[in-house]
């Protein structure tokens, strides 16, 4: 039994070489199908990553110690204009901060020193800067940490607070993604499988004559099916791997095409489970269709 099994499996592989043109055609078709499915997965992965992360501006509130040399503070403010992802900066000297406070308190631009004479001479408020930046890199949390450390390390800085403003769309996406990603993934895998199966079925049709001869020679169903299953796995797997390689090549070419301000959209390669689906789905369905297609001959 095992001898027949091995022999039939080997025949499944050698059949590919015998029917080279048909086999290559099927592999080519499967490659394109996998590649197209891969592009869909890549779009899905990019959408998921981009919408799932904190994309909006993060504002850092930097407070200097009271009495810090204002020239030194202004020099730091100049430096902030050149930070990566810089959007805007609002600065407040102690006097400006007092006035701003007065305005916020509803005094309509009244001078705080007039209202509170004991605040004359700069008052207790420190120099402050509100720096809005767009997160950089793939890990926003890490970026946030590193940027906070940078601000804290500035001379005279007393305290740094950050208020990462998360994108509403991103938060909404996070809520619905599990209802979108997996069904889309399953749907695309199904299409991939059906198309792969149909391609293999055509290849089986081309070999109907061979099936008839095998039946005449006394072949059992599994004698006929096994070589087709092996051929299906090899062709489906090869098509899937080639499609994946094409996708990888495409990704290397376009991953940063949209990664510039204001889009800053990086294209992500599909995660491992999607890559596995690109190879396994055509292989499995091709094997299955190879098995089912011999029915009726």
């Amino acid at each position: 039994m095992s001898r027949v099994f091995v022999r039939l499996a080997r025949r499944g592989c050698s059949d590919l070489a015998l029917n080279a043109r048909a086999s290559m055609g099927a592999v080519f078709a499967l490659t394109l199908i996998s590649f197209l499915a891969g592009i869909f997965f890549m779009t899905l992965a990019t959408l998921d990553r981009q919408l799932g992360i904190a994309r909006a501006e993060t504002v850092f509130q930097v407070y200097w110690k009271a009495g810090t040399d204002l020239d030194q503070v202004r020099s730091a403010w100049e430096e902030y204009l050149h930070l990566p992802g810089f959007v805007s900066v609002k600065t407040y000297t102690p006097e400006q901060a007092m006035n701003e406070l007065g305005t916020r308190l509803g005094r309509g631009g009244a001078n705080m020193e007039t209202l509170f004479p004991f605040l004359s001479g700069g008052g207790p408020l420190p120099a402050t800067a509100l720096v809005a930046l767009i997160p950089q890199g793939q890990d926003p949390e890490k970026w946030l940490e590193e940027t906070s450390v940078y601000f804290r390390s500035q001379p005279g800085v007393s305290r740094v607070a950050s208020t990462p403003l998360r994108d509403e769309l991103g938060r909404a996406w996070k809520k619905v993604s599990r209802y979108v990603i997996w069904p889309s993934f399953a749907f695309m895998t199904l299409i991939l499988g059906l198309t792969a199966g149909n391609t293999l079925r055509l290849s089986v049709l081309a070999r109907a004559h061979e099936i008839e001869i095998l039946r005449l020679a006394g072949a059992y169903n599994w004698h006929i099916r096994l070589p087709f299953i092996v051929s299906g796995v090899v062709m489906g797997g090869a098509g899937g791997i080639l499609g994946l390689l094409l996708l990888y090549f495409l990704h290397t070419q376009i991953s940063d095409v949209l990664n510039f301000p204001p889009l800053l959209l990086r294209i992500y390669f599909p995660p491992p489970h999607m890559c596995a689906a690109l190879v396994l789905a055509p292989a499995a369905t091709a094997a299955l269709s190879g098995m089912l297609a011999v029915r009726g001959y």
Binding site: R3, V4, R7, L18, L214, A217, G218, A219, H223
Partner: peptide
């Protein structure tokens, strides 16, 4: 089977018998 050799064609039923 036109793509297979004479030997393979003749051996086919024996192959199936293992």
């Amino acid at each position: 089977l036109p793509l297979r050799t004479v030997e393979e064609n003749i051996a086919l039923p024996l192959d199936l018998r293992g």
